[in-house]
Design a protein around this nucleic acid. Structure first.
Length: 423
RNA sequence: GGAGAGGUAGCGAAGUCCGGCCGUAACGCGCUCGACUCGAAAUCGAGUUAGCUCAGAGAUGAGCUACGUGGGUUCGAAUCCCACCCUCUCCGCCA
């Protein structure tokens, strides 16, 4: 959520910033909603002030044993007015709230202006794309041939975009998840968490999935619970509504969870293989920082994600998302794309975002500055570190041999009882 | 699912029976500043809820709201009534 004061003060500036991300802001609508709310508020507050003072007079007279019938009678009319105005105010306030919750975050000044993914500048590259003496296969071919990935049975049990992993593939997913958590907790300073996989509406609103992107979520039929599309939701909302002490910042949490996404609107995209599933496992990193430290923390977190890929010897590149390609809640996002020889492309494997105070405002998450003083909004960041399924894809495609076997990265072998190759 | 207890500021907690100087909310802790000290601890003193509206350049001032959430009764609700949520204890059931 944006700062209401900023919108009141400089709506045109906000509108220009949002235009860069391809989102138009109806300044007139905002001004009307806010003016209406403020007018009603002024009116109803004056009446309530009157009621409060008259009530005090009534109390005084009663204590003195005097009659207060005239005062009480006068209040009947005032109360009727208050009731009517309160109702109008509630409608106006709700209208403004809905409007505010649907406005995306403002891009940071360092974010390149662009229209879509074609305008995302490359920031860096790591590793050499391996050359093959044969035509490299895609991961699903390898996975099915080696008996690890069973898409048919996944579809039978649930439907498309579900998979059953068997034997070495299931084991390798567990190995990857453990590897990510071990590095993140032992070396990168994250606290490991286990959180609910279903959350309520308020929590989903806090991080920005709701109210606008409900169609992307799985929602339970008989309970008002949503399956988390990422542990960002549960990890970022951990301190919602709280005031934490500045000395506790920065906080860093990592969690391995299943993620559930409806993938509405992605029909025909990545229909084969593990790239786009309704359910996948991911290790997520979330950081809470002071405002002045959030961009350096973004760089730090991107480094954490990169380190994981480097240890797995997977070539990748980093791109900065341009204004037009960023997610709803982000001020700035780096995408890390891993090289997939089977596809002959770099594909997104991690997305690291600084959301500034956008989510903190929605969930009322603040910190108390060290020297005392008014609470301030925390800045929240999130990044994949890393998604297990997509990393499995990268490990398989990059490690594949001409005979169809897969050589595992050295870092993973201790997690596989020393196994070097899947054949 | 049954019975009981509870939800009040950063934390703990009083107030609820009997509605009105009890919400800048007793008391305690914590925190901030000061005194004492070579310094610290201890002690002593002062301060310390948040959001919104209006006014002001600002310091600030006036007002409204908030006692789990949402309704209701009333001139007036932390206090009375209704529904729901959550926590704890016991019982039942269950991985």
């Amino acid at each position: 959520m944006l700062d209401l004061k900023l919108l009141q003060r400089e709506p045109e500036l906000v509108a220009r910033a949002l235009a860069d991300r391809g989102s138009s802001l109806d300044v007139a609508e905002f001004t009307a909603l806010d003016a209406r709310r403020r007018a009603l508020l002024g009116e109803v507050e004056a009446l309530k002030a009157e009621r409060n003072s008259v009530s005090a007079q009534v109390a005084e007279r009663k204590r003195a044993g005097q009659d207060a019938a005239d005062l009480i009678e006068r209040m009947g009319e005032v109360n009727a007015r208050i009731k009517a105005l309160d109702q109008e105010l509630e409608t106006a306030q709700a209208g403004l709230d809905d409007w505010m919750l649907a406005v995306p975050n403002i891009p940071h000044e360092s974010v390149p202006v662009g229209r879509d993914e074609n305008d995302n500048p490359e920031l860096s590259r790591w590793g050499e794309a391996r050359t093959f003496s044969f035509a490299p296969k895609e991961h699903w071919e390898l996975g099915e041939a080696l008996g690890g990935l069973d898409f048919e049975r996944g579809a039978k049990l649930a439907g498309s975009r579900f998979v059953v992993s068997r034997g070495w593939a299931a084991r390798l997913e567990r190995a990857l998840a453990n590897f990510f958590l071990d590095i993140n907790t032992r070396e990168h300073g994250y606290t490991e968490m286990l959180t609910p996989l279903m959350v309520n509406r308020q929590t989903m609103t806090g991080t920005g999935q709701l109210p606008k992107f409900a169609e992307d979520l799985f929602h339970l039929a008989d309970w008002d619970y949503f399956l988390i599309p990422t542990a960002e939701v549960s990890l970022t909302n951990l301190y919602a509504g709280e005031i934490v002490d500045e000395s506790e910042l920065p906080m860093a949490f990592a969690a391995q969870t299943p993620c559930f996404r409806s993938e509405a609107g992605s029909y025909g995209k990545d229909t084969k293989g593990l790239i786009r599933m309704h359910q996948f496992t991911k290790v997520e990193m979330v950081r809470y920082t002071q405002p002045e430290a959030s961009y350096e923390n973004l760089e730090l977190m991107r480094g954490h994600a990169e380190a994981l890929l480097q240890r797995l010897e997977l070539p990748y590149r980093v791109i900065t998302l341009c204004t037009g390609d960023m997610g709803f809640a982000a001020c700035k996002t780096y995408d890390i794309e891993v090289w997939l020889p089977g596809q002959g492309k770099y594909r997104e494997i991690s997305s690291c975002s600084n959301c500034g105070d956008f989510q903190a405002r929605r969930m009322n998450l603040r910190y108390r500055p060290a020297g005392g003083g008014k609470p301030l909004y925390v800045h929240t960041l999130n990044g994949s570190g890393l998604p297990v399924g997509r990393t499995l894809v990268a490990v398989m495609e990059n490690g594949q041999q001409e005979d169809g076997s897969i050589v595992l990265p050295r870092a993973l072998r201790p997690y596989m009882d020393g196994l070097e190759r899947i054949a």
